[in-house]
Write a protein that binds this DNA or RNA. Structure first.
Length: 435
RNA sequence: GGAGAGAUGGCCGAGUGGUCGAAGGCGCCCGCCUGCUAAGCGGGUGUAGGAUCAAAAGUCCUACCCAGGGUUCAAAUCCCUGUCUCUCCGCCA
């Protein structure tokens, strides 16, 4: 949610921001509604003030044994006015709240202005795409041939967009998760290690409201209706909600969490996109980084967070590039986002494998996560950031494709060898006549 | 799932329907005192919104004692519902 005072003070700044995001917002309508709520609220407060003082007077008179009838009458009259005003105040507040919650974040000044993904700006390109003496095959073909990936049986049991890993494939997935978690929980040159969290996969609606998935993106979420719980679309939700409603000490910032979870997305708007392979699944694994930062250092911290994500790719020897999303392509809650894209030889292009964002105080205002400044002991909203490091399924796909060989086997990257139980090359595996 | 108990400030904990944003203690902060530390002494110490103000401080108003309803002129206090926690029993990976 946006800072109400900031918008009231500079509505034209917000209008520009929404325009650059290509979202249509009736800002003057909202401000008008907000003003009517504000007036109703003030009216209600002053009526309460009058009522409270009369009630106190009744108490005094009663103790003194004086008559109170005429005061009763007045209070009853005021109470009617209070009730009427309260009704109006609540109605306006609900309308106003609903509209505030649908406003996207304002992009940071450093975000490139642009219409859509074609205006995103490449920041860095690291590693050379491998060259093959044969035409590289897509990961689903490699995996199926090796007998470590099974989409057919997955769809029989669960429908479209699910997958099953077998043998060395399952092992590779587990190795990646362990490898990523170990990297992030180990001290490094540019900062303290992350603290690992293991969190619930189902959350209450208010947790999703806090991080911005609700109310606007309900159709993207799996909902367990009987209990009104949602499956998490990303670990960002439970991890960011860890401190919801709390006030931290500035000395404790930044807080750095890493969590591995499964993620669940309905992919409602992606019909027909990436229908084959591991790129777009209803359920996928991800290792997520979350920072709670002081406002002053959140932008530098976004750089550090992104570096932690790309470091995984470098250690795995996967070519990647980093792009800065333009205003038109920026996510709803984000003020600035770097996407990290990995090279997929079969597609001959880079595909998103991580998205690192600074939400500034957009989520923390919804979540009421605050901190107390050391200097003056004042309380303020902190900044939240997060990024994938990395999406496990896509990493696995990238390894299969970048490390494939002409004979169909796949070489295990050196960094993963300690986790693979002696497997250094994935060969076709078949444990029976039914691959 | 059954039975019972509970939910108050950073923590512990009191609170007869009006003078309660809430005693007392701990913690924390500031000061005094003392070779240092500890102890002792004095003071301060919730959040949000609003009014006043050039601004800050200060003062004042409104709300918040798990949440939502209700009773009442008046609710932390009485009633109802929900949520959560704890104890016992049952079931269970």
């Amino acid at each position: 949610m946006l800072d109400r005072n900031r918008i009231l003070k500079a509505p034209e700044e917000a209008a520009r921001a929404f325009k650059s995001r290509r979202v249509d917002v009736d800002l003057s309508g909202l401000l008008d509604l907000d003003a009517r709520w504000f007036d109703a609220n003030r009216e209600w407060e002053s009526l309460r003030e009058r009522r409270n003082s009369l009630s106190a007077e009744i108490g005094k008179k009663k103790r003194a044994g004086e008559p109170t009838e005429e005061l009763y009458a007045e209070v009853l009259r005021i109470n009617e006015a209070i009730e009427a005003t309260d009704l109006r105040r609540r109605e306006l507040d609900a309308q106003r709240e609903e509209r505030w919650l649908h406003l996207p974040n304002i992009p940071d000044a450093s975000v490139p202005v642009g219409e859509d993904e074609t205006d995103n700006v490449e920041i860095a390109r690291v590693g050379d795409p491998p060259s093959f003496s044969f035409s590289p095959r897509p990961h689903w073909e490699i995996g199926s041939t090796l007998g470590i990936l099974d989409f057919d049986r997955a769809s029989r049991m669960s429908g479209a967009r699910f997958s099953i890993l077998l043998g060395a494939g399952a092992r590779l997935e587990r190795a990646l998760i362990s490898f990523m978690l170990d990297c992030h929980t180990t001290p490094r040159s540019h900062g303290a290690p992350y603290r690992e969290l293991s969190v619930p996969y189902m959350v209450l609606p208010e947790s999703l409201l806090a991080t911005g998935q609700l109310p606007k993106f309900r159709e993207e979420l799996f909902h367990v209706a009987a209990d009104d719980l949602f499956l998490i679309p990303t670990a960002e939700v439970p991890v960011t909600n860890f401190y919801r409603g709390e006030i931290l000490e500035e000395a404790d910032l930044p807080v750095k969490f890493v969590a591995y979870t499964a993620c669940f997305r309905r992919e409602a708007g992606a019909a027909g996109k990436d229908t084959r392979g591991l790129i777009r699944q209803h359920q996928f694994d991800k290792v997520e980084l979350v920072w709670l930062s002081s406002p002053e250092s959140s932008m530098e911290n976004l750089e550090l967070l992104t570096r932690d994500a790309t470091e995984i790719l470098e250690r795995l020897g996967l070519p990647y590039r980093v792009i800065s999303l333009c205003t038109g392509d920026l996510g709803f809650s984000s003020a600035k986002t770097y996407d990290v894209e990995v090279w997929l030889p079969s597609q001959g292009r880079y595909r998103e494998i991580s998205s690192c964002s600074n939400f500034q105080d957009f989520q923390s205002r919804r979540a009421q996560i605050r901190y107390r400044r050391s200097s003056d002991r004042k309380v303020g909203l902190l900044h939240t950031l997060n990024g994938s490091a990395l999406a496990v399924g896509r990493t696995l796909a990238a390894i299969l494709e970048n490390y494939q060989t002409e004979d169909g086997s796949v070489v295990v990257p050196d960094a993963l060898l300690p986790y693979m139980g002696g497997i250094s090359r994935i060969q076709p595996e078949s444990i029976s006549s039914r691959p």
